[in-house]
Nucleic acid binder design. Structure first.
Length: 510
RNA sequence: GGCCUCAUCGUCUAACGGUUAGGACAUAGCGUUCUCAACGCUAGAAUCAGGGUUCGAUUCCCUGUGAGGUCACCA
């Protein structure tokens, strides 16, 4: 069995998008699983669509996600290359493609075409008007060799086209879909070498996959329709076929169609910026089109390598479900150790305008820990912990706890007396807390102290804790008051801040 | 339109031709609880349709329907 060699071959036409990542992931996993090689190759043969910076984005996105290539470009304070089958950028391999294109001409598997784009457009229009599938009419195939030579000598613009026979059934085997047959009459005489001397995808991919000894061509299933062209090329060259693995598409939640760049926010960078962890993204994507046939859902990269198999790949397209991604993300956020949580979250605090350097690390760690199990995305942190850094703004009415749902029957209690109770509780709590030393504000003490206070004064828990909590954070939903006080306690003026917020709440109610 | 591919809860998906069609996300309810989150329990929710083959089809075959992909000097 030859060495397993896979490749991910994106075009630098923009940010790497999420579907590409899944393809790259499967290629990577399959190579690792078989102790083979996974390589990255850049397919930049379309000069018009090149987007500056996208090559760097692709390379860096893959590295962030730990999909590390054995050969191809990588980033190390600049773009570098490794591997013995280079160059790994197609625009640097032009002579190779031209040589092979010549070979195809000689073998009569391809021919020169001098047709203008105007003629091709017109031809296409006519065919469409007659409801025929648009195809090149092989006009230039009728040219004599003398005519071709003189046109070439006159430097007429030309391309090289694949000469597709009209009467064949082209068969190939796909690892996921099984045998696929496509009549050659439905296959166009594809341009292989463009008039600018660059190859099209079809020539370049076949030449490179062969030259780089690729054993498994794993790619999106939108390529199935053009695979017959590739088969014809392999045959013409007399090269052995790689294993084809056409992956089902990732579908948009909104449209049910193939996820596309036009829908926005599908680039890896967007997800990373929003605060999705690379591990969560990988885990989620791995399960979109593949599953281990067990009930395990959480996989790290090592486990994925161990479990991955091409046989467990799915046939049908999978909808990209953001809710499920959010769930994976929150699972991974919760699993983070405090140092890691701190390192990943602080940049988002900074982004939210919080001057983190002004606060003790212990304080910041405590508030991050408070939110750890509540976050779906890292980017949510700023808004959630804002109240620690500025006076919370809220309506006085929020200080009164909402009626319990259980007591649906009787009309809401008289607001006024409730308000008075809350005010009274807040005031006596204030006095009580003043008598406590600042050290007692740490959680294990403050919880006991306040609970004791409630009990000895025969107060209702909800009528003390709710207003206290709202006074501290100004939010309907938040972590518990003891935890919030505990966080404040790691500030030099923590006690004062807590008391100040309580007295402010009292004033609002008064 | 031609060609190709696909079809199990809303979503991701399990199920040697024999299961009360399983799990997860989401949703709802309950419990815990000062609120939220987390956690625990519970509920509803699916085999696209019609024909075969078979003692028996989610599973195999055919037809239909639906969805997606593709038909460039783009990848």
């Amino acid at each position: 069995m030859p060495e397993v060699r896979t490749r991910f071959a994106p075009s630098p036409t923009g940010f790497l998008h999420i579907g590409g990542i899944r393809t790259a992931l499967y290629e990577f996993l399959w190579a690792r699983k078989n102790n083979g090689k996974y390589l990255l190759r850049i397919e930049d043969t379309d000069r018009q669509r090149l987007v500056p910076g996208s090559l760097e984005n692709i390379v860096q996105s893959l590295e962030t996600l730990r999909i590390v290539s054995d050969e191809g470009p990588y980033w190390d304070k600049g773009l570098k290359f490794r591997g013995e089958f280079g160059p790994y950028i197609q625009s640097e391999r032009l002579p190779i493609y031209q040589k092979y294109a010549q070979e195809l001409i000689e073998k009569k598997a391809a021919y020169y075409c001098f047709c203008s784009s105007e003629r091709l457009d017109k031809l296409r229009e006519e065919q469409q008007a007659q409801k025929l599938p648009p195809k090149y009419d092989k006009l230039c195939l009728k040219l004599s060799s003398e005519e071709v030579s003189s046109k070439l000598a006159a430097k007429e613009a030309h391309v090289i086209r694949l000469n597709v026979p009209s009467d064949r059934i082209i068969k190939f085997h796909d690892h996921i879909h099984g045998d696929i047959e496509i009549p050659s009459k439905d296959v166009d005489d594809q341009v292989l070498l463009k008039s600018d001397g660059f190859p099209t995808y079809h020539l370049a991919v076949v030449v490179d996959d062969y030259s780089m000894k690729i054993s498994h061509v794993i790619r999106a299933d939108e390529w199935i329709a053009s695979t017959p062209k590739h088969i014809l090329l392999y045959e013409a060259f007399g090269w052995p076929l790689p294993v084809f693995v056409h992956l089902p598409a990732i579908l948009s939640q909104a449209t049910g169609k193939k996820l596309s760049k036009r829908e926005g926010d599908v680039s890896v960078k967007d997800f990373l910026d929003k605060g999705y962890l690379p591990e969560a993204l990988i885990n989620f994507l791995a399960l979109l089109g593949w599953n281990p046939k067990t009930e395990q859902e959480i996989f790290n990269m090592r486990e994925l390598v161990a479990e991955f198999s091409l046989d467990k790949l799915n046939k049908s397209g999978a909808v990209f479900d953001l809710d499920k991604l959010d769930w994976f993300n929150s699972m991974y956020i919760r699993a983070l150790k405090i140092e890691d949580l701190f390192a990943r979250l602080v940049p988002y605090l900074v982004k939210a305008g919080i001057q983190t350097e002004k606060y003790p690390k212990e304080f910041l760690e405590k508030i991050l820990l408070l939110e750890q199990s509540r976050l779906k995305k890292l980017s949510e942190i700023g808004e959630r912990v804002k109240y620690f850094f500025e006076e919370p703004q809220y309506e006085p009415g929020l200080l009164c706890p909402p009626a319990r749902k259980a007591s649906a029957g009787p009309p809401p209690a008289e607001k006024k007396s409730e308000k008075e109770t809350i005010l009274k509780n807040l005031n006596s709590l204030q006095i009580f807390l003043q008598t406590l030393s600042a050290e007692k504000f740490a959680q294990k003490d403050i919880e006991a102290e306040i609970k004791n206070f409630i009990e000895s004064n025969q107060l209702k828990t909800g009528e003390v804790l709710w207003p206290l909590r709202v006074a501290l954070c100004g939010l309907e939903a938040s972590p518990g008051p003891f935890e919030i006080i505990d966080a404040f306690a790691s500030l030099p003026d923590g006690k004062e801040q807590v008391l100040k917020r309580i007295s402010r709440a009292s004033e609002m109610l008064f």
